[in-house]
Amino acid sequence: MPEKPAGTLYRGREGMWSWVAHRVTGFLIFFFLLVHVLDTSLVRVSPEAYNVVIGSYKNPVMGLGEAGLVAAIVFHAFNGIRVMLVDFWSKGTRYQRLMLWVVVGLVVVTMAGFLPRHLANVFGG
């Protein structure tokens, strides 16, 4: 059986999992961005075409998808700030683990503000 590698700064802990989450959220956001530029481009086709496609963003299933998308963006944004602090702040590496929990807390607070508003818009009609 392969031996477990020795503890490093990042492997298997908050540092690694935040890196994985940053990569996964970035990957998802990129593909949404491609689709979002295409759907917005329909304003060049006709008002009717744009309104039909943007209307599909207002159904409940897409509404939940948007909530997930916003959560991914908010995490990626706040964790990106954490990455910058690790890179540029002299104490960044010492506090990288604590800063991840600050990031998670800020994501929870931001989503607690956003979700009731957005879900009321989506499900309230």
Partner: peptide, 19 residues
């Protein structure tokens, strides 16, 4: 995101006229 999803009626007011 704030202007398009939070302000006003959020996503419900996004249409050609809004853009």
């Amino acid at each position: 995101l704030f202007v398009n999803l939070v302000q006003g009626e959020g996503i419900n007011r996004i249409d050609f006229a809004f853009v």
